[in-house]
Design a protein around this nucleic acid. Structure first.
Lengths: 145, 145
DNA sequence: CGCGATCGTGGGGAGCGCCAACGACTAGGC
DNA sequence: GCCTAGTCGTTGGCGCTCCCCACGATCGCG
């Protein structure tokens, strides 16, 4: 009934990495979707939470999200009432995006959600193993930037 | 000039995982793209190499690729001459997909490409660290299946 | 024979990442 | 002050991966 994946793939490190990541991402994405949200929303909310009101271009630089996609995401967040878009009086090109009270609440909620999910994802690992994994990933990640 | 990503994300394990995976995937994808190929192609070729001629549904089960997407991918591989699609004489519903000589050559080529790239991806890790990482990822991956 | 399951195929959609172009605007050099 | 270069928001498009649904054809089993 069940047919296995080729061993060639299973022994390829980058395959292990991307597959594990996909499972993780799927779990997170489903949790977000259940709240009518998605990754981009959380990224923007978290960035606004940490850096305060910013222009859309700055948000893009912080999150790594393309300016084009920022527009759509901000539109959605504005429509949901989590964020406000107002023109920058000091620079006619910019919009200033700022969190509303509902937005801050939203961020905290999603944040707790993400924290809870971490355990679900890394369940089979001990806390020291998790730290080891995080360390290795950080090392690799730092190298590509 | 350079603006950092929120620390909230950097300290989230699943974020580290997905981000690292994305870098890896991007490197692999670019290498594939430079050869007019993509991930699905390699997955199918590798599966055919390991399990021999198979039906499209079987390929889907081995690779985790949806039947719909198998169709398109096989079309592309047929057009490139790497694969042949012939009706199964024993079962009127099935097509038998088999590698051509060019397909086997192609698989070997892409396979070497992938191997080479692994070093580029995990450059900052020692071989023991790579083994540790692979072990941890395998552990997590096994848990989600 | 008939019914459920499988197979190939087509269509659509979501999420994420990326690029091109354009009008509005700002800032720096002259 | 003017002009050029660069930034910003916005629209529109593309690609890859993953996923779901529906249909006609075929098979297998009761």
């Amino acid at each position: 009934m069940e047919e296995k994946t080729p061993s060639v793939l299973l022994t390829t490190p980058s395959w292990l990495l991307t597959q594990t990541a996909m499972h993780a991402q799927r779990i997170v994405a489903e949790a977000f979707a259940a709240e009518n949200s998605r990754g981009y929303h959380f990224r923007l909310l978290a960035t606004l939470m940490e850096f305060g009101p910013s222009s859309q271009a700055a948000l893009g630089r912080h999150t790594g999200i393309d300016r084009s996609d920022i527009v759509a995401t901000v539109n959605e967040l504005v429509a949901a009432g989590y964020v406000e878009r107002s023109p920058d009086p000091a620079d006619g090109r910019r919009n200033i995006i700022s969190l509303t009270t509902a937005g801050k609440r939203r961020h905290r909620h999603l944040s707790e959600l993400v924290d809870t999910i971490q355990d679900k994802i890394f369940a089979p690992l001990s806390s020291t193993e998790r730290a080891t994994l995080a360390g290795l990933l950080t090392k690799v990640l730092a190298h590509h930037s």
